[in-house]
């Protein structure tokens, strides 16, 4: 696994790796690699470069280290004993992450995270737990607490779930593994133990489509499958992409969903967007919401979706 790393990336990584190593004196190479997201060869290459670093009037190397038998040994620290300060972007992202996490369900609001936040804020000269300048809103539906408890206990839940693509409600048995929110919606990812005899699969469900939820009191062994990162299924290259053209004023409707690409045309009044289509049904509804001035450019088989969807809804109004 070889990849090109820029000098900037290599130097930044070295400047966090060196102080960490200096506090420890000897660390297995494999552990360094794992911790800093590098291969062992990359760690070796970078540390060997650093060990060449030398300035007069030092007789010895400035950074005294050697690697022997898969272990990194550090000598007497001289320079780079402390990490570089946080950049303003790093500090911002870190504090946002901590404050957002405090609004997630299941977080102990008197616990380690709050203490950590207060120490960080003090060190960075930022406000502590209450920041009047930045508000992070995360609202959660009531079902989230039950689902999260089921995740902790590795418990099977029974849920009546409505699926819009076939407009059917089915009872599913799911072992929830994670709950998450993305663009204001909540999802639960879990092992769908199958309708009938089909194979268990990791699936993501929208919590606002769960009609009823029941904790079964049945527990299973913790599965060791890796979960997909939340939101990643939208990025799944296997999903078909559609290219839409619409007035820029309607972009907000499309941006509720993960969009691969947005191109502004005609001085910005018209946009073309490319997005993953999870179901034809979903795209049809989106197109009818976008209305007469929006169209599917590609693929061709979906160009007429808006018309068929509009027709079906009109029938309801005509008969009413």
């Amino acid at each position: 696994m070889s990849r090109r790393r820029t000098s900037e990336q290599r130097l930044s990584r070295l400047l966090v790796m060196l102080p960490w190593l200096m506090e420890r004196e000897s660390v297995p190479l494999a552990e360094v690699a794992e911790r800093f997201g590098l291969s062992e060869a990359e760690v070796t290459e970078d540390l060997e470069l650093a060990s060449l670093c030398g300035l007069p009037p030092y007789a010895d190397e400035l950074i005294d280290l050697f690697i022997d038998d898969g272990v990194v040994f550090m000598g007497v620290p001289r320079v780079f004993t402390r990490p570089l300060q946080l950049t303003s972007v790093e500090a911002f992202e870190l504090l946002v992450a901590v404050r957002a996490a405090l609004r997630l369900p299941g977080v102990d609001r008197d616990g380690a995270l709050v203490r950590g936040l207060n120490k960080l804020a003090a060190a960075l000269g930022e406000p502590g737990i209450i920041d009047e300048d930045v508000t992070i809103e995360i609202e959660q539906p009531p079902a989230v607490d039950d689902l999260l408890e089921a995740v902790r206990r590795v418990e099977v839940v029974g849920m009546e779930y409505w699926s819009p693509s076939n407009d059917e409600t089915a009872l599913r048995r799911v072992v929830p593994r994670q709950v998450f929110t993305d663009r204001g919606r909540w999802y639960v990812t879990g092992i769908d133990t199958g309708l009938g005899a089909s194979i268990d699969a990791i699936r993501t469900f929208r919590i606002d489509r769960i009609i009823s939820l029941e904790r079964t009191g049945e527990f299973v062994d913790p599965p060791d499958e890796e979960l997909p990162a939340p939101g990643e299924w939208f990025g799944d290259p296997a999903l078909t992409r559609a290219r839409l053209r619409l007035p820029a004023s309607l972009l907000w409707m499309v941006e509720k969903y993960p969009v691969d690409e947005i191109d502004h045309l005609d001085g910005g009044d018209v946009v073309e967007v490319v997005l993953a289509v999870t179901s034809e049904h979903w795209l049809a509804r989106l197109m009818v919401r976008l209305g007469p001035s929006a169209e599917v450019i590609e693929p061709e088989r979906w160009c007429d979706l808006r018309r068929s969807a509009a027709e079906v809804i009109l029938q309801r109004y005509d008969s009413g």
């Binding site: 997630l104 999260l148 994670q178 998450f180 929110t181 990162a229």
Partner: peptide
């Protein structure tokens, strides 16, 4: 990906 409750920011 160790978090059991998450928010995409």
């Amino acid at each position: 990906s160790e978090a059991i409750a998450a928010a995409s920011i």
